[in-house]
C-alpha cells in the first residue's frame, strides 16, 4: 500500500502555493538489483490536483521523474480553508489520494 503524501498549501496573496511530496520508488526499468536482474519499471503516470473539486493540474509523467517525487504548483483565486485534493496513479494501477486545506498567509 502506498504511503501518504505530504501536501502543503499556503496562501501568498490570492495564490495558493501548493507543494506535494509523494512516496514512490519511480523505477526506470534501467536499474539492476544486487543479483543483476533488471528492476521492472514502476512509476507514477498521472497526477491530478483539484481545488475545491475542480481540476487545476493534470500531469502525465514518465519514469524520468525522481524517486519520491516533488510537485509544485500555484493556484490563483484560492482562499484559506479551500480544499486541495491530489491523486496519483502508477503504471501498475496503484492509486493514492490525499487532501490538504489551504492555509492562510503567515
Amino acid at each position: 500500500m502506498a504511503e501518504p503524501m505530504r501536501i502543503r498549501a499556503a496562501l501568498q496573496g490570492d495564490v495558493a502555493d501548493v507543494r506535494i511530496l509523494m512516496r514512490h520508488p519511480m523505477e526506470t526499468g534501467q536499474r539492476k538489483d544486487a543479483k543483476g536482474d533488471i528492476v521492472p519499471t514502476h512509476f507514477i503516470q498521472n497526477v491530478v490536483v483539484t481545488h475545491n473539486g475542480r481540476t487545476v493540474l493534470d500531469a502525465q509523467w514518465s519514469q524520468a521523474v525522481s524517486r519520491d517525487p516533488f510537485l509544485g504548483l500555484r493556484v490563483k483565486g484560492a482562499k484559506a480553508g479551500d480544499t486541495i485534493v491530489v491523486t496519483w496513479t502508477d503504471n501498475k494501477g496503484d492509486k493514492r489520494t490525499d487532501e490538504a486545506t489551504v492555509a492562510a498567509a503567515s
Binding site: R54, S62, K76, G77, A78
Partner: peptide, 9 residues
C-alpha cells in the same frame, strides 16, 4: 512530463 493546467492554476 506534461502538465495540463486549468481552472485558475
Amino acid at each position: 512530463a506534461t502538465f495540463d493546467v486549468a481552472n485558475g492554476a
